[in-house]
Design a binder for these strands. Structure first.
Lengths: 345, 345
DNA sequence: CTGTTAGCGCCTTCAG
DNA sequence: CTGAAGGCGCTAACAG
């Protein structure tokens, strides 16, 4: 039924290994037979069986992408964008991709390790700040390269052997602080997320924010750092109804995620406040929705195209056996000034 | 290095086929050896090699999902949500999933067929209204079940052998028309997308819309049916600047996608119009952003949870060899009344 | 440059 | 109920 290299071999009058060589562009065949065999293969609509190939060569032409499990698709918008870019990049390299959820938080199945041990993937792109060192060590023992992107465990940032691409959260926070302070804000709030062990991106943002404010002699009071369970739109909106005091004590807020900032703005608007006249709101991430609403959101742009593209190309390079120029990359965020913050005082 | 069933066999003092039987819960082994062998396998952290398994049993425990290629991630928001739900469903069934792009429009590679012929997937979930009958026939010849979800080719709706799950676009349009007319609107506009061969979802929506209006003795003039190249936010916003005449001749509009409707509202607002007081805008899809903006968008809800969940479970059922109750399902949309439309006249 | 031989890890016959 | 043998489709190691 299905056409195999043996069928091609018969038709071409050569042995199957020769066919294999032709198809894989081995230099060990004459240009002539190579062309002829490939011609025949094309005519017969030959498609190599990936399982057979994977079994003997350990190459599957598939890579695994591990993302955090998000019940609410809201929080995964950003990750979806990265995913899409990754998929396009991999497609250009004739690679498929299997997306699986990171189980490191829920103590569920370890899909990263499973995919590798099952021999389903050649490499891994991982967005997780909670993956354990043990898992990565196990991954390395299997001889499968993996690269962290976007979300990087704190321990991985220290180890020179770990590969990762993310952006400078400290600098992002700094840009936000420096900008808000430059507008004249002196008493600001900050809304972040309850963090788990090993995640330092949000603490970095806060530290950077403080540093940015300090340039203008300002700072955030501890009591003005709020923590949400999730940085979702709903959470942001709800928060707006419970911070009457905060609104009087501060003139603006820095949210660690656009989604929550947008919900917050909506909440304030429903109370009759005018943004930014009455209160300045700054976000983080630069999601698409940021300019759909009114006022358009001032925020920090994460270099998402670069993060996903770089991560994918690094992995491709590793799989080709090439050495990487840089194995750990911290990209720079940029300030995006729109309409949700204004001068104060 | 890697532990195989032979290793387990040695440790357990049985032959490897026996180990295989134990692991696959074959009834041909005694309960006792089954337990013992499984125990040992667990201790040795055995993970079956999927390539080997796939090679001889033609089961990969992976399914392929084919989605239209969207350069702009904006348009894929809806599909991303469906995808996420599918992934969760498949995960519950211990299945991985490979997402690939539909090449039927760009005459690119036919990933659906490739994945199947490569033996990378056990089944296919396809969101495409442009896939050819030939491709599906070829798929069937390979013995791999496939199910269309959300986007279904017009030809497939006719053939009883094709499996699909989508929703009733005609009824969605009808609900919109009936509602707007009931609010007193008599002169309405409709914004749709340039459609390609084989796609009838949008013509269905328009036909339903007309039918809904007719109940109240109204209709849409041909000149008031506008066509955009893409139903994106930007396109909707741009449109708002070019329809001064339309705004005078009509009192409201029905967009065939929320994204474009939201952009349109934003565009009108920037001209100083107040929605819905000055003009009513209705969307379609019920995307999340619909209630993030002001005014919150009145729209038609597509039963997306049901579509993706049903499609996935139908495929699982088929793979288990079960017969399907219903192989073609048209689900019902619902009207979501929010704040972007008001009474007129 | 090409053909022969072997084997990847597993499942599926077949004997016993 | 269990073991022995064979083969899935392909690539890799040798010969020639």
């Amino acid at each position: 039924m299905k056409v195999t290299i043996k069928d091609i071999a018969k038709r071409a009058g050569v042995s199957h290994p020769t066919v294999s060589r032709c198809l894989n562009n081995s230099p060990l065949v004459s240009e002539e037979t190579r062309k002829r065999v490939r011609q025949i293969a094309a005519e017969m609509h030959y498609v190599p069986n990936q399982n057979a190939r994977g079994l003997c060569s350990n190459r599957t032409d598939t890579i695994g992408v591990i993302v955090p499990f998000c019940q609410v698709s809201e929080t995964s918008l950003f990750l979806d964008e990265l995913l899409q870019q990754i998929r396009v990049m991999l497609g250009k390299n004739q690679m498929d991709c299997i997306v699986a959820y990171d189980g490191s938080r829920q103590e569920q199945e370890n899909h990263a390790l499973r995919l590798v041990r099952q021999g389903k993937v050649d490499g891994l792109l991982i967005a997780s700040s909670t993956m354990s060192r043990e898992t990565v060590t196990a991954l390395e023992e299997e001889g499968v390269p993996s690269i962290f992107y976007h979300l990087v465990p704190a321990w991985a940032e220290e180890e020179t052997s770990t590969l990762w691409v993310h952006h400078d959260n400290y600098r992002g926070g700094f840009l936000a602080g420096e900008y808000l302070a430059s507008l004249g804000h002196r008493r600001l709030a900050c809304v972040t997320v309850a963090h788990y062990a090993g995640e330092k991106e949000f603490t970095d943002r806060l530290a950077g924010f403080q540093a940015g404010l300090q340039i203008h002699g300002s700072s955030v009071a501890k009591s003005h750092v709020l923590t949400l369970k999730e940085l979702t739109w709903e959470a942001g909106k709800q928060l707006a109804g419970k911070v009457a005091g905060l609104l009087k004590e501060t003139s603006g807020v820095f949210f660690h995620a656009d989604q929550a900032a947008l919900g917050f703005i909506k909440g304030l608007q429903e109370q009759g406040l005018v943004i930014p006249r009455d209160y300045s709101v700054m976000g983080y991430d630069d999601i698409r929705e940021g300019f759909m609403t009114s006022p358009e959101l001032t925020t920090i742009h994460q270099p998402r195209e670069a993060i996903s593209t770089l991560a994918a190309s690094m992995l491709m390079e590793r799989l080709k056996g090439g050495k990487l120029q840089a194995s750990q990359q911290t990209l720079n965020p940029t300030l995006v000034v729109r309409k949700s913050c204004c001068t104060h005082g």
